[in-house]
């Protein structure tokens, strides 16, 4: 589904991502792991068009999507979440999820100003769908709360649900359980599994090894911008290079 061909990104002499290639299979959960500074978030930012690649190409289902901007990629079926939570705290929980459906909504100025019937009807329909999504994470009751009043753990889940609103084919999750307690981690992990049931391909960047090993179909290990290893969770767990890299950086699997 997603094909990454020899992409490179430099930040002033330092190669954050260096000649990296891999493929992501449709319907899989493909995790990208590696020590801090290995270039994982840079990679996500390149796939989602936040950074321009210095060289290399990225293909989605055979179509070149290299350097296409984030908002246009949403229309091609790619959506992402952020390592450092990006939630509109000035909106309500429901409004945040409704934002996910934005690409389907009619926002013509005249119709909005004069309160066209079609907009009202659409809004009501998407509200139902948004409430359904909130139901998945048990948040219907908090729908009208301002997002700023909610806990970090809930907002992390909210971000994933918002991304689902865009009905993506590929979703990139950048450290979805960072900073969550074990219970919340399990909930997010369950959420991700149910998402896969809907046949969405997932690229997961995560440090939580337990979760990665549990839910991944495939793992790519990065170190210093390069691909260190690739394989199924079992293969990775027994790969000596990976163990060395992780012990070297002080992270225990």
């Amino acid at each position: 589904m997603l094909q990454i061909n020899r992409v490179t990104k430099q930040f002033g002499g330092i190669k954050a991502v260096d000649d990296l290639s891999f493929r992501v299979k449709k319907g899989s959960i493909h995790s990208i792991i590696g020590p801090n500074g290995a270039g994982k978030t840079t990679l996500v930012n390149m796939i989602t068009g936040v950074y321009k690649v210095d060289s290399g190409t990225i293909f989605l289902d055979g179509a070149d999507i290299t350097n296409i901007s984030t908002d246009k990629l949403v229309y091609r079926g790619i959506c992402r979440t952020f390592q450092n939570l990006e939630i509109c705290e000035n909106l309500t929980v429901l409004e945040n999820v409704l934002l996910g459906f934005d690409k389907y909504m009619d926002k013509s100025l005249l119709k909005s100003c004069f309160r066209a019937k079609s907009i009202q009807v659409d809004e009501a329909r998407y509200k139902q769908r948004a409430l359904h999504l909130l139901g998945l994470i048990g948040l219907e009751k908090l729908a009208d709360q301002k997002a700023e009043n909610l806990s970090y753990g809930i907002l992390k889940k909210l971000e994933i649900v918002r991304a689902l609103g865009t009905s993506p084919e590929l979703i990139l999750l950048d450290e979805p359980v960072a900073g969550l307690n074990p219970k919340e981690t399990q909930e997010v992990s369950n959420l991700i599994k149910t998402v896969v049931a809907d046949e969405v391909t997932i690229i997961l960047v995560e440090h939580d090894m337990k979760m990665v090993m549990q839910i991944s179909d495939y793992i790519t290990v990065m170190n210093f911008g390069k691909k260190l290893a690739q394989g199924t969770p079992e293969q990775i767990a027994n790969n000596e290079d990976v163990i060395r890299a992780y012990l070297g950086s002080g992270v225990v699997c």
Binding site: C88, L91, K103, S112
Partner: peptide, 22 residues
Amino acid sequence: SPFGRVLRSIEGSEKAANSVGI
């Protein structure tokens, strides 16, 4: 309207707005 929601989302987080296709 949805238009207004887009505006407020820009104040809230431009990155979030961008990530849902705005």
